Amino acid sequence: MSLILTIFALVFVTQLISWIGQSVLLELAYALYLRLFHSSTDAQLRKLKIELLNTKSEMLQTSAQDHFAKWAKLRRSVDKGLADLEKLNSEVAAKKSAFSFKFNTAIWILTTGVQFFVGWWYRRSAVFYLPPGWFGPLGWWLSFPFAPAGSVSVGVWQMACKRVIKIGERVVKDLAASSHSMTEVQVEGQEDSKKDS
């Protein structure tokens, strides 16, 4: 793949991750991670919650005055279940914290880190050349910092791609908002015509 498309793809993936949200991706990846690698812990946690709810429901239905022995036994069972649930939740929280750190590091490396590396590796390369005299004396800025004169550098191309993608995002959001508002106006117009007839 050419340098121009590689840089555009890297910038697009970075922007896509920011649109979706890193926390949303983290939750999806963590749920998948739990199901694939820690399915027994996940199943044990769900089973414990269900048992705890059932026992607590039964305890609430049992009169503490009339059936004290049964109520006390259920109460001890609920207390033990809560302690087990708290212990399991702390284990899951520790796993999630470790996974979160690794996931965020991987996302940073795959997006920002790769962009820095590509910018550094191709710092003296031209992404493409401009026709002579298009930008006059400002042409040197497009090749900033190390690309040959009359060319567009990797850093400038990354900034241009990011700007174009952000403008595209704004245009799509504005179009979606205007089409949504037009649909609401049409629906209100149809409701008004039904009321008049």
Rank of each mutant, 00 (worst) to 15 (best):
K166E: 05
S57V: 10
S2G: 06
K80F: 06
I4L: 10
Q15N: 15
K95L: 09
S197C: 04
K194G: 11
D196W: 08
F101P: 06
G139Y: 01
S97F: 15
I165H: 09
L26Y: 13
K56H: 07
V13W: 06
S18R: 03
I17W: 03
E169P: 08
F135P: 12
A147R: 08
G189C: 15
C161Y: 10
G168P: 07
V11L: 13
S23L: 07
S179N: 12
V11S: 14
L85D: 10
W121M: 06
L3P: 10
R124C: 09
R46L: 00
R76H: 10
H67C: 15
E91A: 01
K96C: 14
V78R: 07
G119T: 03
Q186H: 13
K95C: 13
V24G: 07
I17E: 09
L74E: 07
L45E: 14
A83S: 07
E91P: 09
Q158N: 03
L10C: 00
E188V: 15
S63T: 00
G168Y: 13
I17R: 08
F117V: 03
L142R: 11
K195N: 14
V152H: 06
V13L: 14
K162W: 01
A149Q: 01
H67K: 13
L85T: 12
G81L: 04
P131D: 12
G189P: 15
G21F: 01
D196K: 15
V118R: 00
I50G: 05
T41M: 15
A29D: 02
M182N: 04
E51Y: 04
S63V: 00
K166P: 10
G21S: 04
A160E: 00
L10P: 07
E184C: 14
I167N: 08
L48A: 11
A72T: 12
F101W: 11
R124L: 11
G136M: 11
I4A: 03
K80D: 10
Y122W: 05
D42K: 10
I20V: 12
A43E: 00
L48C: 07
W141F: 14
F128R: 06
I107A: 11
T55M: 12
D79F: 03
E191S: 01
Q61D: 13
I165T: 08
L45D: 08
M1N: 02
P145A: 04
S90P: 02
I109P: 13
K87P: 02
W71K: 09
A98S: 15
I20R: 06
T111G: 03
W134H: 05
A69Q: 10
E191T: 05
W121R: 06
S2C: 01
R170W: 02
F117H: 11
W71A: 01
F37R: 03
A69R: 00
A9S: 01
F8Y: 15
I7D: 02
